[in-house]
Amino acid sequence: MIIRKSDEVSRSPVRRFPVPRNFGMDRQSRIGRGKTWPAPRGAKHVKAFDVYRYDPESGENPRIDRFRVDLDDCGSMVLDALFWIKDRVDSTLAFRRSCREGVCGSCAMNMDGTNWLACTRFISDLGDPARIYPLTSRSIIKDLVPDLTDAFAQYELIEPWLQTRSPEPETERLQSADERSRIDGYYECILCFCCTSACPSHWWNPRRFLGPAALLHAWRWLTDSRDEATEERLDALEDPFRLYRCHTILNCTRTCPKGLNPGKAIAEIKRKMLERRG
């Protein structure tokens, strides 16, 4: 019942909120039934995967296809299963991936109801059928590929680079070990947007609320001893929607595949705002 680390998989029997599957969805977003692909012949260990499909060229609504994966012929991670499906069953399945070891953040998606990286989630941790969806509450380009334009625009809005006013020193801008340690837990973010896509407040105000990923980065620069634009950064966040739409729900901290704490970063910003007001 007590979750210690974000990589622990929920065992609670409640898998969904009690709302209809297409509750409140736009006409173009409603999910229909897809096709069921045949099970591999002669396979001994088979697991069903229900995968969200959307083909922009078909003119049809998204659908759920059921694949059956031969676990003896496939690696142990969800990303391996997706590759297996793409190689053996349906080559049109689209998903992003790159490093396959939790470093790049490309394969972020929703598996059994929570956002995580497909390359670091064990197939054995998912139910049968495993439910594979794109990141939650995103405009979908194709299948498991979400449009992250807005997410990166929000990241850009917090100006994620070092800003200084003091004259450029002869050597590097130095930090003490203690000053450097203050950005620990914040600089490691890989921008997979698992957290922002998991935030209910961001679901309801996706444009005006910056979301946990962008705000975590905002704090990463606010707390950097070398950065001299603290006042301007705080000014840019002093807004009922950009920052204060965070209601400390903490789905972000629960879901971060790097074990970071966006919720805490946002609380730090709020406290800094309060200190500044005096």
């Binding site: 909120f17 969805m25 173009q28 003119g59 998204p62 969806y133 405009s139 194709k142 903490l250």
Partner: peptide, 27 residues
């Protein structure tokens, strides 16, 4: 990000959120 002109005619779907996301103690 335009893959095919079709995407401009048909608005993109929004992936499910509350309908899908697992209830957790947090939320």
């Amino acid at each position: 990000v335009s893959i095919a002109p079709v995407t401009r005619i048909r608005p993109r779907p929004l992936s499910p959120n509350i309908q899908l996301y697992r209830p957790q103690l947090t939320s």
